[in-house]
């Protein structure tokens, strides 16, 4: 029983991180219809900013967290202004290709101008302390991830439901043209969406840095693949779906790791994707996604 509870705590931590990542992707998608695969590089730039700050003498945890979050927001806004705004009215595939392009360019720049190898960033280590509650080992980072995810979801829901800008973002997700006819500036709505997404990327960067203790050029790209799967699983375009998809994916990851016999360990990812496929076979629109008319594809 102790063991099961311990693994549930672990799964909640995995799920929280996936949910935060997925929310960042889903926010931008819901406004622009863009799957921003460069979200991983926003996380990476935030991480490298902390690395540079430490190299210049920064020792404060709070300072490192602030830098990561601010740089996450700034990077997201720069990406939007420089790369995504020019292709805003282009087909979605163009946006997708742009996102991949930005991702590759940033990774290559980090490789060339910093290093292809991992660089240690120990400053956030104090966030990741393990303590025991009875027989259960709980990491402060796990609790932080869970708490921040809950706060982020509640704050997002309040922002989107109670503020004028939030309402504009939700409306833009439905019908951007009508929203613009009502006097809302598209640039402002989209930039706000990217800024929120950058904020979440900065927070995720802090968590990954605290756990990993180092940065490298593909620092954010692998987690974003998980976030994409979480979004699809939860229903792309649905913020609640992204959070639920992230949590479900976290539980799936841990459950498979624990339940799969060691000799089949190499099938872990395959089994995860198979189970995600089964869920999508049952609900093609994702767990909380809306059914979209995709046309008649009968033979």
């Amino acid at each position: 029983m102790d063991y099961a509870i311990q693994q549930i705590v672990n799964a909640l931590a995995f799920g929280s991180e996936y949910a935060l990542l997925a929310l960042g992707l889903a926010l931008v998608f819901s406004i622009m219809g863009l799957v921003n695969f460069a979200h991983g590089e926003i996380i990476a730039v935030a991480g490298y900013s902390v690395f540079f700050a430490v190299a210049l003498g920064l020792q404060s945890v709070l300072g490192a967290v602030t830098i990561a979050i601010v740089m996450g927001i700034v990077t997201a806004l720069v990406f939007e202004r420089v790369a995504f705004r020019p292709v805003r009215y282009a087909p979605t595939t163009t946006g997708l290709l742009t996102a991949f392009g930005v991702s590759i360019v940033v990774q290559n720049m980090l490789t060339l101008f910093v290093s292809p190898k991992a660089r240690a960033v120990p400053v956030l280590g104090p966030l990741n302390q393990t303590f025991f509650i009875g027989p259960y080992a709980v990491s402060s980072l796990q609790l932080l991830e869970l708490a921040v995810t809950i706060v982020a979801i509640v704050a997002l829901v309040l922002f989107l439901n109670r503020s004028l800008l939030g309402l504009a973002i939700r409306a833009a997700a439905r019908d951007f043209s009508t929203v613009r006819l009502m006097g809302v500036k598209a640039n402002r709505v989209i930039a706000t969406g990217f800024a929120l997404s950058g904020f979440l990327a900065g927070v995720v960067s802090v968590f990954i840095l605290a756990r990993r203790g180092s940065v490298e050029p593909d620092f954010g790209s692998a987690p974003v693949i998980k976030a994409f799967v979480a979004c699809v699983l939860g229903g792309f375009g649905s913020l609640a779906g992204a959070a639920v998809g992230g949590m479900v994916l976290g539980f799936l990851d841990v459950a498979i790791l624990v339940a799969l016999p060691q000799k089949f360990g190499g099938l872990r990812d395959a089994l995860t994707y198979f189970l995600v496929g089964v869920v999508l076979f049952w609900r093609p629109q994702g767990l909380l996604g809306r059914t979209v008319e995709l046309g008649d594809k009968e033979v």
Binding site: Q6, Q7, N10, A11, V258, L260, G265, R268
Partner: peptide
């Protein structure tokens, strides 16, 4: 079992302790 790129070993550590 584990995968390259693992940053959170909590599930494996819980198993080791069990």
């Amino acid at each position: 079992a584990y995968s390259f790129g693992t940053t959170d070993w909590s599930p494996q550590i819980a198993e080791i302790k069990a």
